[in-house]
Every structure is written in C-alpha cells, then in structure tokens.
Nucleic acid binder design. Sequence first.
DNA 1: TACTTCAATGTAATCGTTTGCAACCACCGC
DNA 2: GCGGTGGTTGCAAACGATTACATTGAAGTA
Lengths: 343, 343
Amino acid sequence: MSSIQDVATLANVSAATASRALSRPDMVAQTTRERVLNAAQQLGYQPNMLARSLRQRETRTIGVIVTDILNPFHAMLAKGVQDAADRHGYTAFLFNTDEDAGKERRALDTLRGHLPQGLIVVPTPHTHENLKLVPNLPIVELDRVTGNTGVTTVTVDNIGGARAATAHLIGLGHTRIGMIVGKLDITTAVERHAGFRQMLEESGQTYFPELVLPGQHREKDGREAALRLLSLPPAVRPTALFVGNNEMTVGAVLAARELGLKIPEELSIVGFDDSRWAQTMTPPLTVVAQPAYDLGVLACDHLVTQLGHMQSGRARASPARVQLPTELILRQSTAPPACVPTA
Amino acid sequence: MSSIQDVATLANVSAATASRALSRPDMVAQTTRERVLNAAQQLGYQPNMLARSLRQRETRTIGVIVTDILNPFHAMLAKGVQDAADRHGYTAFLFNTDEDAGKERRALDTLRGHLPQGLIVVPTPHTHENLKLVPNLPIVELDRVTGNTGVTTVTVDNIGGARAATAHLIGLGHTRIGMIVGKLDITTAVERHAGFRQMLEESGQTYFPELVLPGQHREKDGREAALRLLSLPPAVRPTALFVGNNEMTVGAVLAARELGLKIPEELSIVGFDDSRWAQTMTPPLTVVAQPAYDLGVLACDHLVTQLGHMQSGRARASPARVQLPTELILRQSTAPPACVPTA
DNA sequence: TACTTCAATGTAATCGTTTGCAACCACCGC
DNA sequence: GCGGTGGTTGCAAACGATTACATTGAAGTA
C-alpha cells in the first residue's frame, strides 16, 4: 500500500501539495496537479481512511443496527440504507442483534470505536438504555420508535395499515376477528393492535379481548397463538385472523393447516408485511405491504442531511417524523365467513 | 469522547502508562493500574480504533462481500461470518454487490481504505479481475470459487448434492429428467450440472441436452426455463425437474402451477438450497439443503487462523479446500412419474 | 559502600493524512 | 525600482493511540 508520501515523492512535491492536489484541486497549479494525479494513478494510491478520519475527525461512516438480518423485511431495510449511504458517499456498517440486549450493546461498543457519524437503528426495548453508550450521536429510528423525543423516526403507518386490514375483514362480513399481535413493548405491535381495535369499534363491531393473543414475533409464537385461537369452540372461534408480522403469519398458516382449516373458506387470514412467501403460498396471502426499501433509503437520507446541517454549523435540524403509507394487497386468503352468504 | 490522555491525566500518569495499564496489565504496578482503570471507567473511555489501528497497522477488521443479501442463503452466510468474527474479536464489514461488477469494485475500493486484514467473498466472474484492487489481502472464497490457486475456499459438495438429487429422481422411475442450471460461469452451477450429468450416465440413463436450460439465477429465469421445458410435447416433456438454486426453483414451481401441472403427480421437482418457502409451500419441496450458517462460520474461522499465522510470522498457512456435505431432504414434491406404476 | 539488576514510568517517535502558517516568487502598478 | 498582491508551495503541527528507548529509584549482592 503506497502512501501519499510515495505519491508526493514520485511527483516531486511535498506530501502537503500531493494531498491538496487530490482533495482541493483548485489550490494547486494545473501542471503539478497533473503530475500528482499521474503519480497517484501509477501507484494505485488509495487514501488511508484511518489516517484521514483521525485527522479530520470525520469518518463518513454510519452505523446500521437491525434486529434480524434473516428477516427479509430487515434485509430490505438494510439494503435501502446501504444503497442510499453509498450514494451520499458514506459507508454503512451493518450489525445484527437478534433482538438481544447484549448483542446490541456489543454492536454499539464496536461501532463507537469506529467513530460513526450517525446511527440508524431498529430499536428494541433495551435500545433506550444502550444508546447511552454512544452519547451525542445523531440517531434515526427505523421501523419502530423508542419514544425518545429529539430523534428522527422513519416508520410506516401501522395504524392505517391495521385499520385497512381490519376494515377489509369487516367488509367481508366477519364478526369474530382474532388478532395475533407482537410483543407489546414494541411500538409497531402496539400500533397495529390499536388500529385493529379502533376500526372494530368505529364499525360498531365488538372487540373481543380473548381473541387477541400476543407472541414473540417468531413463527413458533404465531403457530401457538393460532392453535389456541382456532381450537376454541366453533361458536366462538374467530373466522378471520389478522397477524401482526410476517414470521408469525407463517406460523398461523401452518396452524390452520394442521387443524385442517381451509383458507379462505373456513378461515380468512391477513398478514402484515408482504414477502415472496406470502405471494407464492397457496392460497396467496392478503397482506398489508410495507415499503421496506424506501424506509431504509429515507432513514439514511434524513440522517445524512442532518449530518450536513451539523457540519455546516447550522442549528440542529428539527427531528423529523417520517411516516410512509402501507398498502393492503388483496389476494386469496380472505373471503366471507362460511355462515354468511356472499353479499 | 475522552481520549487516553484524559484518562492519564485523571489517573496522574503519562499516556504511555495509561495505555499499558489497559492493554499490558502486567507491565504496570498494581496500584497505578487500578487508578487508571478507575479513571477509564469513570470517563467511559473507549479507545479510538482509528488511532489504534493506524499505529498498530492492524485493524482487526475483515470484509465480507456477498452477491445478494436479500437471498436468505446469503443472509445466512453473512450471519455466520459475522457471528464467528465477533467471537474472534474481529469486526466484519458487510457489502452487497447484486452480482454487479461495478458495485463489487466500489465495495472493494471502500473496503481497501479501511484496511481490512482479510476478505471473505462470494465471487462473481469479475472477482478475479477486481481483486487486483486489494493486492496481498488474505482471501477466503465462499460458496463459489474463482479458480485462483492459493486462496482458501469454503464450499459445499455441489456435485454430491446434485448426484443425490438426481439419484433420487432416477430411483423413483423418472427417465426424462430436466435441469434448470444457473449461469455456467459460476462454479456452483457448473458443479451441480456436472453431478446431474454424472449420475444420469452412471445409472445408464440418457442425458438429454435439450432438457437442460440455463438461467440467470433469478425467479424470472427459473419460470421462463420451466415454461419452455414443460411446454414440450407430452412424449418428450420432462417428468421431473432438478433446479439449480432457490430463486429459480420458485419460478419453476410457479410455472408448473401456471400450466396446471400437479406436483408431484404430473411433475416432480427437486430444488437446491432449502428455505422457509420450500418447507411451507404446497406441497413441501424436496431439496438439497446446504449448511449456510456453518459455511459462513468456517470461512471466518479459516481466515482468522490464517491471519494468526501471518502475524506470528509463521509460513503462510497452505490454502485449505473446505467442503461441507449437503443433505437431500425428502418432502412431497417428488413421486414416481405418472406413467410408471409405483415400484 | 559501590555496582548491578530490574521493575515502573516517562519521553518521544511513529502510523498517514490534513491544514494553519509562513515562505517564495512572479507580476503588477506606481 | 519598490512595495504590494496573490497564487503555489513547503514546513510542521496536529489527530489518538502504541511502543522503542531512556530514566528513575529501590532492592540485591559482593
């Protein structure tokens, strides 16, 4: 690896001039600049980011923390962030926490040593506490929020999405609608539940608390919750399920299959978050789709503009609350309940 | 952010002593060590990796380049690598190239500036050329190989996997077996094709070149190839398909559905690489499963031991050729061909 | 007592880059 | 001819850590 000194020597100038030729072209004479550029080219010179960042006290690096890189939704978020960061000339370092407080802490510690200029995080209930490890770091919360005021958040309209899903089921004539909701210490779960309940009540339907079960977001949890709900006596069994995230939806579908319930004839299902699987399972699943890639891109865009503001000494940009719409995609997993004739 | 100088001042020692107290405990007196440790604790001191790495000329960082982070197989590889790196005290920086030469080049350039000590890469046909950007960097090739001698490779037994899948189909009585193979400039595709052909010929079956179509690894390609194969006249149409990767398998299944072909009664399908989708589609898919997580872990382990060897001045470890077995998982997408009675 | 030894600490150089400051030179206008 | 101006350049000091080497002082030995 050749250093700028090597380039300078080859071009017969001082290191300072070589540096300027590369990063402040207008400060050096045309001919010297060309000599330096040639030398750099010839040596395949690539600046040492460590040294540069150390001196400039700016790494052009941001951290990204997601909770489950194996979840396609999160993978898509990460991709959006990374693509956007790349466009802005930043490098995004990606960490995965499996929703684990310890891993999150370790990720933050590692990150801190590398002096990122900002952080995009899908928060967990521990994040609020853990973020003390990186004081004064500009943060953007993605997908979920911690309730921290003062940070920018980029989320989807979970309430709207849940309302749309619920309205759809009500419209089909369902009156006993169950919901499998996520952990209630996670904002998306809370909001989706709120939207569900709102829409039921606004439509004059009864909200049955016993038809709402929480899960830990995993396939297994979705399956267990669904098994419990669907094993209720026929008179009280829900005829439709609204499931709060993609993993649990898989579990719910599997549970229905185990019990021999035909979808959608005997059970309607709406999932939250679209996926390859939802599109190609039989029957294709009706879902509330989220613009995951755009969420990632927006989070990064906002973080970068915020960094720009800070750097140029302007007042800290007021924290944004970005919310993207969801889209209810009707497929074949929903139908009128068995006992009600098609309207 | 407090520096080691701050810690030193607070502890009433020189920066040198503070540094030693933290990283060479046995070189400093018990009592001073405690003073330093306290000071560090109190200030929440975290060493600046940039400065440290610059001085030590060692970043304890490795690069990871995969070609499609949205593909669960690659996400799993990445996770394996990152978990292992973490265990070894290394930080893994993940990049995604979408199989694109330009993106790969940019990723390598970015990476180079951060001076990684090694690189784990899922190579594309351009990788051989692009790797010139990072001369003298220890490399581990993951999943695929470039044919570079001198680098460690961690792959699965593609030939064995393909042979097992093919043998299974032959055993069921299929005589016209088609294959949708990947791009033939990618080693996994070549090997899976080779295994397929080998097994056919060893079993005394005919290898029909016209039943083997290439694709670009995407769902769309799988669908198109399958549509062509399955639209052949009944007399020559394949009764079974072996598909070379997970994405294309989805396409093949969709194609069969479009044509109204029942799986497995009218068409048997075996995919390469297991997935959530393969497990839960109807019917569940027979697949050649790959130990993706372990591949990632092993790649990282080998890279790290190699780094250890280099550092301790020992001879460069001879490049390993690690190959993990695949496992044929029988589910319900394969059955004897319609015209042949169950043996 | 004087000399050696060794543990504990400090001094200063170093990694590769950027950048404030000063030096230099050529040219211009008076 | 001289001072001023401004465009180019180099010198040297940072950035924050590690580490070779020098220094100190106390203990051990003859």
